[in-house]
Measured scan of single mutants.
Amino acid sequence: MASQGTKRSYEQMETDGERQNATEIRASVGKMIDGIGRFYIQMCTELKLSDYEGRLIQNSLTIERMVLSAFDERRNKYLEEHPSAGKDPKKTGGPIYKRVDRKWMRELVLYDKEEIRRIWRQANNGDDATAGLTHMMIWHSNLNDTTYQRTRALVRTGMDPRMCSLMQGSTLPRRSGAAGAAVKGVGTMVMELIRMIKRGINDRNFWRGENGRKTRSAYERMCNILKGKFQTAAQRAMMDQVRESRNPGNAEIEDLIFLARSALILRGSVAHKSCLPACVYGPAVASGYDFEKEGYSLVGIDPFKLLQNSQVYSLIRPNENPAHKSQLVWMACNSAAFEDLRVLSFIRGTKVSPRGKLSTRGVQIASNENMDAMESSTLELRSRYWAIRTRSGGNTNQQRASAGQISVQPAFSVQRNLPFDKPTIMAAFTGNTEGRTSDMRAEIIRMMEGAKPEEMSFQGRGVFELSDERAANPIVPSFDMSNEGSYFFGDNAEEYDN
């Protein structure tokens, strides 16, 4: 993207840094990872977990959730003011799984939030270390993106479920800051804005008074975040219109849905970061690795190297396929839920299948599930090659597409044709070009129609051997075009429920 120079890199967003050079960025990201790792080690000690239990991804998720809940100030305040039966607002906890007599047992633990905050700050040299908290939120978000298709949420806001490739980060909490905003897809931002506008339509006082002023500035800020994701002048001009509207209503909703559809071809720039579970960072720190000293990046080879040398386990339900569970977590670790499966298959070195073909449910185990038949197995999170994460949407291309997802959002900077089903997408653009945004709409449609099938995206960008740390010898991959490109292809993934 041309304006790259004016933006802070995501590592800076990730670490609240002012302008830093590459070495400083690597050190501050490393410091953040160190903090998460030290916190995780301490929690495993508190909970008396064995090494194996500490490497269980379900335990990692519970521990991450506990610290996120302990620092969720708004919710904590709300819980104190609106006490609900049987919930102690000062405590947080969740299921911890232990191996007892050759069987997995679930144990519900409860801790004072104050105590968890103390352990977290102690692991982070006394700081609140917001960057580390956001990092864990993005890992949870990436896992949700890989596990669930947001059909219901899309339909509720009037969008087409086939636009799911635009929904990265749709389950990120509001408090995820600049680093969170960077990884949100165009569809996620559109959905947040539509929800806001709908509230304004239904509630006369939404934009009024002292609160209304705050609401208005939040609305304009979200519009600017979305505008910054678009790469064409016409899309940005249309966002200006939406932002400046005196009284946002149905016309703005129409414009936003139009823009979301246009992003299936004229893709937005959305950041991709490899955020790993805390149970990967903990053992690495415990083994003596100093992330701050060595430096770390979320968008280069580092996460690949770390996963190459990590042992992570997962509980497996009786009829689940461990290899499929591994694929789910591998995609989440690489922030690749909406990437082209052919690119992923090449990088991973084994075939990556669409969601609907995987015999696996989510990673988390519900409290009512029976533990008797639970097994555990090693997650295979290694890769054959590594590639640089991208934040450009890439230019655009036609490809055989599917009944489910009709476009992709690249996660890796790797040369390819970008699949999208042009006739299906263009069919949504018939007729409606009147109104105050008509010239911009016409211009956007013209650009979409001009998108050429034979153009290559990320020209000359390749993948790298894991021994090639400096990215000196790019390998331009070859793809098996007979395979499906979309992950949520004609899909039956479970729906995400809060």
Rank of each mutant, 00 (worst) to 15 (best):
residue 3 S to Q: 10
residue 3 S to T: 11
residue 8 R to W: 08
residue 15 T to M: 09
residue 21 N to K: 15
residue 26 R to G: 09
residue 29 V to E: 02
residue 37 G to M: 07
residue 37 G to K: 10
residue 41 I to C: 12
residue 44 C to A: 12
residue 47 L to I: 11
residue 49 L to P: 10
residue 54 G to D: 10
residue 55 R to K: 15
residue 58 Q to H: 12
residue 60 S to K: 12
residue 67 V to Y: 09
residue 73 E to A: 11
residue 78 Y to M: 00
residue 79 L to S: 04
residue 80 E to M: 05
residue 83 P to S: 13
residue 84 S to M: 15
residue 93 G to A: 06
residue 96 I to F: 10
residue 98 K to V: 09
residue 99 R to V: 08
residue 99 R to I: 11
residue 101 D to A: 13
residue 104 W to P: 02
residue 108 L to V: 12
residue 116 I to Q: 07
residue 118 R to H: 09
residue 118 R to N: 06
residue 121 R to N: 10
residue 121 R to Y: 14
residue 124 N to P: 07
residue 126 G to M: 11
residue 131 A to M: 09
residue 137 M to Q: 04
residue 139 W to E: 06
residue 147 T to M: 10
residue 150 R to I: 08
residue 158 G to F: 06
residue 164 C to K: 09
residue 171 T to W: 04
residue 172 L to I: 15
residue 172 L to S: 05
residue 175 R to Q: 01
residue 178 A to G: 06
residue 189 M to Q: 14
residue 192 E to S: 05
residue 197 I to V: 15
residue 200 G to A: 05
residue 201 I to R: 01
residue 202 N to R: 03
residue 212 G to T: 08
residue 216 R to E: 09
residue 219 Y to I: 01
residue 226 L to W: 12
residue 226 L to T: 10
residue 227 K to N: 12
residue 228 G to D: 04
residue 236 R to L: 01
residue 239 M to S: 09
residue 245 S to Q: 04
residue 247 N to P: 06
residue 248 P to R: 03
residue 251 A to Q: 02
residue 256 L to F: 08
residue 257 I to W: 05
residue 264 L to N: 04
residue 272 H to T: 02
residue 273 K to L: 04
residue 276 L to F: 09
residue 277 P to A: 08
residue 277 P to W: 04
residue 279 C to Y: 12
residue 282 G to P: 01
residue 293 K to W: 02
residue 294 E to R: 14
residue 296 Y to H: 09
residue 298 L to A: 01
residue 300 G to H: 05
residue 301 I to C: 04
residue 305 K to Q: 14
residue 313 Y to T: 02
residue 315 L to V: 08
residue 316 I to S: 05
residue 317 R to K: 12
residue 318 P to M: 11
residue 320 E to Y: 02
residue 323 A to N: 15
residue 332 A to T: 13
residue 338 F to V: 09
residue 341 L to W: 10
residue 347 I to P: 00
residue 348 R to D: 03
residue 351 K to Y: 09
residue 355 R to C: 10
residue 359 S to N: 12
residue 365 I to S: 04
residue 371 M to E: 00
residue 374 M to Y: 10
residue 380 E to W: 13
residue 381 L to W: 04
residue 385 Y to E: 01
residue 388 I to N: 04
residue 391 R to Q: 03
residue 391 R to E: 04
residue 398 Q to L: 14
residue 399 Q to I: 02
residue 406 I to A: 10
residue 408 V to R: 00
residue 410 P to L: 00
residue 413 S to V: 05
residue 416 R to G: 06
residue 416 R to A: 03
residue 421 D to V: 15
residue 428 A to D: 00
residue 429 F to H: 02
residue 433 T to G: 10
residue 435 G to K: 05
residue 438 S to E: 00
residue 438 S to K: 00
residue 443 E to T: 03
residue 444 I to Q: 13
residue 455 E to L: 13
residue 455 E to Q: 15
residue 456 M to H: 08
residue 457 S to P: 07
residue 458 F to P: 00
residue 461 R to M: 07
residue 468 D to H: 08
residue 474 P to V: 13
residue 479 F to Q: 09
residue 480 D to T: 12
residue 486 S to G: 00
residue 488 F to W: 03
residue 491 D to S: 02
residue 491 D to K: 01
residue 494 E to W: 00
residue 495 E to L: 04
residue 498 N to L: 02
residue 498 N to H: 09
